[in-house]
Design a protein around this nucleic acid. Structure first.
Lengths: 223, 223
DNA sequence: TAGATTGTTAATCGATTAACAATC
DNA sequence: TAGATTGTTAATCGATTAACAATC
């Protein structure tokens, strides 16, 4: 049977009770972190829930409530020290140091991901590339040698990787995902336009541009 | 002031009343469509809300309720004709025919998107490429000539494009987005890791892999 | 001090689910 | 017919917001 209760996780010891963190709150924290990092990059030192909310199209109350699950990070009358709040969110999200990430599938998209410099300073670094195409195995992309996908399980185990990006064709995605699970991967970022079946302990996030486009066309006038 | 009510849209005339469709429901329809298309591709002809829900990790009641906003598409005792339901969802999402899409920024990611064959048959086709790099302007990618980004507004207007993908560096994204709005674009799929400010009538969807990764690491054990 | 903003509470609002009559 | 499944209702559950005491 499915568990239709929201996924929640215990986080803060609060007096004697343990609070639970709704998934939807966790989902907003990276967005807060990204906006705060931008503010910091632009030289700003302090912000308020009101300002941050206006930037993100979120109510100030929601931001304060979300943060309150984890502690008290602001000052009445003043707001939040941006650098401090960034540090706290990095700690909460466990992105204070870098996670090493495996990338499976080095086609066009895989190449783009391997070259992407947007992972740096945000907690991730691709350190292993896999493909099953004999013509590319052994070649280097962005300084990393592409490994044989048949060695995926032992290589990932040996490196103790916990996160993988999946950029293989849709009809290969489930088989590779199962291998990733076997190798001990606990989080999969899936670019294949297909729903994966994995054990409950493994987190899957989906990126499919068409899903986003179709969410927009619903609201557009037919041409 | 912000409008913090959920975005809702009138859709179905239901007796005398007009129903409103919550954003969150609209967001699930493309996921249903993708799964149904997969089932159809695999030769299946009929499904039920129970089966579809189990595939997606969603309750059957939710699927039935979501669909009920738009009409009655199933048969008691039998379930849903997959092809028929696909057609209905395509109509509702307005992806029965192809939308022409502009792509701005033909770097690594832009190349991958220009080559991606996952848009075909799902309602979208990239028909215009723009970049500001003189070395690539005029060259072709996947049969499309890259146009000068300084011509973005008149070109998009002339072609009457309504949707654009934004794959430029973060520090250029807001400026380009403003141009897209000026050109009459009504939906932007933004790959730059930054929040865009656009008029309310313009829909923005965000794709930032790091956001997804950070949503996963929250739940992982620190290494 | 006066003004601003936090963290939190309680109320409101909306989404999800259980249950079932209808019916294929 | 018996079994299965829909579409819908009402109840439950959870998320958001308004409001405000606390306090910087």
């Amino acid at each position: 049977m499915h568990n239709h209760k929201p996924n929640i996780v215990s986080e803060k010891r609060h007096g004697m009770t343990l609070r639970e963190i709704p998934d939807i709150v966790v989902g907003r924290l990276p967005v807060y972190l990204r906006a705060l990092s931008r503010m910091s990059y632009e030289g700003q030192q302090i912000t308020s829930s009101k300002e941050l909310g206006e930037r993100l199209g979120i109510s100030s109350a929601q931001i304060r409530k979300d943060l309150s699950h984890f502690g008290e990070f602001g000052k009445q009358g003043t707001g939040y020290q941006i650098e401090f709040l960034i540090q706290q969110l990095q700690r909460i999200l466990k992105v204070g140091t870098e996670w090493e990430v495996a990338l499976v599938g080095v086609g066009d998209l895989g190449h783009a991901l391997a070259h992407y410099n947007g992972f740096a300073n945000r907690g991730f670094r691709i350190t292993a590339l896999f493909d099953n195409n004999p013509e590319v195995i052994g070649t280097a992309v962005n300084g990393l040698t592409i490994l044989d996908a048949t060695k995926l399980v032992p290589e990932i185990q040996a490196r103790n990787l916990k996160i993988a990006m999946l950029a293989v064709p849709a009809d290969k995605a489930q088989a590779v995902a199962s291998q990733l699970v076997e190798a001990g991967i606990e989080g999969i970022l899936n670019y294949a336009p297909i729903n994966l079946t994995v054990p409950k302990r493994v987190r899957v996030q989906y990126i499919d541009p068409v899903i986003h486009l179709q969410r927009m066309t619903f609201y557009l006038q037919d041409v």
